[in-house]
Design a protein around this nucleic acid. Sequence first.
DNA 1: CCTTGAAGTGGACACGCTGTCCATTTCAAT
DNA 2: ATTGAAATGGACAGCGTGTCCACTTCAAGG
Lengths: 186, 186
Amino acid sequence: MERADAARNRARILEAAAQLFAERLPQDVTMDDIAKKAGVGRGTLYRRYPDRASIAVALLDEHERALQERLLRGDPPLGPGAPPAERLAAFYAAMVRLLEDHRHLVLGSEVGRSRFETGAYGFWRAHVRALLVAARTPDPDALVDVLLAPLAPEVYGYQRSVLGLAPEQITRALAELTATLRSGPS
Amino acid sequence: MERADAARNRARILEAAAQLFAERLPQDVTMDDIAKKAGVGRGTLYRRYPDRASIAVALLDEHERALQERLLRGDPPLGPGAPPAERLAAFYAAMVRLLEDHRHLVLGSEVGRSRFETGAYGFWRAHVRALLVAARTPDPDALVDVLLAPLAPEVYGYQRSVLGLAPEQITRALAELTATLRSGPS
DNA sequence: CCTTGAAGTGGACACGCTGTCCATTTCAAT
DNA sequence: ATTGAAATGGACAGCGTGTCCACTTCAAGG
């Protein structure tokens, strides 16, 4: 069980980190900033979260879980039941939504480590790979990361912030990629 | 004009950096390492190259120029003349080749800054965008970065090093994406 | 060949961030 | 109230960065 002071500090840390991530670029938020803002010592911070990424992951966790749950057991086309190409399109749309709602957190969760090492990536990968297999795509293992690449937070951030594209435009462009599945084995 | 000692040191720096990038992960190569190995002071190094990325870019420059030249004026399908979908496939194949041959350099060229800021990305972007326009794809601006995303060095590195995929597999998977162009406006 | 000043050099320095360590404090179970 | 295990927080060492400037080297002109 978690001690009272521990729980209090955990909450403080997460709240402080959320604020800082919202107002600054993730790489400009230092562990010291977070500790200071949370009113907590360095050691306390490091005890739970070894780096920025793990804090962002903690903040993002519930949102990602919710989507993972819907992918596994939700209604079609996001959940099981629809044809693979449509499920992929629905997945893209949902991910764009997730990226849009938590852009800075997602960016923060990848500072330092590469996105492939995170648990979430493994889940998205397994999901899309299953869709590829269901669609009888040749060599799903090679295609899956290719199809996930456009969802990298930096790509999305570039499209939104620098190019000024609307989320719907991006979703539509991603939908074009599902032609890959629709056209069947080549 | 460049002074003799300046030219000598420039050569030393590039050679030292090339060796270090080859034997170590780019983020583990420090400016100090490069200066030390080149037998040059910190100040001298920073005078020409403000960061690691600019050194990697310098090393990569001629290879990227060569491909850019072939895209503009080479034979089809890489150069002008072939249908857009085939030119895109050829571009993918050439990029895989470039990534394979200079993987560590490409990775090094993106340490710190995001890949979208490099001059090279702008060129690849313009090229693919022109192909999309030629194929009468709706909203080329949204699709172009999506199609370039799988060529991010981290993605390629992950597929090669962690998953153990062969370059040909990756090229083939990328070729599937060109279905997006072949299927015509939706 | 010598002078000259501009270009180039290199290493010391200050700074900021990271991650660890441990003496002290706080908690909750008895 | 006691107690020891858990938690805390700030000091500390280490490392990499980027800057600064006294010194050196170059090459052009007399």
